[in-house]
């Protein structure tokens, strides 16, 4: 038996589409994760006891169980509570919720890490709590959490692979399909790994570039 890359590469257009799907899934889920994460973090910092407990339990549950199980529960269990979703929306929702819960923890600690004095200075010149959140806390927090946030973004790329189990036509589903068709499993899975690695590398580099650019905004103290 020999390592036949050409066999797998003859499916290049299909692989290309699958890669675009994966990147698309990732971008949508990442944006949604950030929005969900911000919402949870801000509500948990300012909300009442009941809301906080509910959100804390949600975050703990998502962080305490495998993503695969969460996806199955949403896709196959959802209809039992009247939530019937197509593969793509189900996959995106699960992935966004998963990413959002992880992001919320990073954002929450990030907001806490903004020096108290920066908020006091804003109070002294008359900014309202909402203005302080929007103009001071969130921008400063985003700079602080960039390294940790990039980590979660990278993790999310790899989690998109799990969506293959409910038949979302992304990289893992398509390439392992090609493997089954051609029996070139090793070649297919090698290529698949390289694809993810490339995406992760691009994401990590973007994160590092952003970090360098934003280093100017870090406080000197």
């Amino acid at each position: 038996m020999r390592f036949d890359v050409a066999l797998v590469l003859s499916y290049l257009p299909a692989i290309g589409w699958a890669a675009i799907t994966t990147v698309g899934l990732w971008i949508v889920a990442l944006v949604a994760s950030i929005v969900i994460g911000l919402a949870i973090a801000v509500i948990r910092l300012h909300g009442g006891a009941i809301v906080n407990t509910v959100l804390r339990l949600l975050v703990e549950a998502i962080r305490g169980t495998p993503f695969l199980i969460q996806l199955f529960l949403l896709y196959f269990g959802g209809p039992f509570i009247g939530l019937t979703l197509e593969r793509l929306p189900a996959g995106l929702l699960a992935l966004s919720l998963f990413g959002g819960c992880y992001m919320s923890e990073v954002f929450r600690t990030g907001i806490r890490a903004v020096p108290r004095g920066h908020i006091e200075a804003a109070e002294c010149v008359g900014l309202s709590q909402m203005q302080i959140l929007r103009r001071i806390l969130l921008p400063e927090m985003l700079v602080l959490v960039l390294p940790a946030g990039t980590n979660i973004a990278v993790g999310l790329i790899k989690e998109t692979a799990v969506l293959s189990v409910i038949g979302v036509p992304e990289l893992t589903a398509v390439i392992s399909g090609i493997g089954s068709e051609t029996y070139a499993f090793v070649e297919a899975l090698t290529l698949l790994s390289l694809c993810y690695w490339a995406l992760v590398e691009i994401c990590a580099r973007l994160g590092r570039t952003a970090e360098q650019r934003l280093s100017l905004y870090r406080f000197a103290a």
């Binding site: 004095g117 920066h118 200075a121």
Partner: peptide
Amino acid sequence: FQQFNLWPH
């Protein structure tokens, strides 16, 4: 303030 507390961004 003692610590200036300028907004770094």
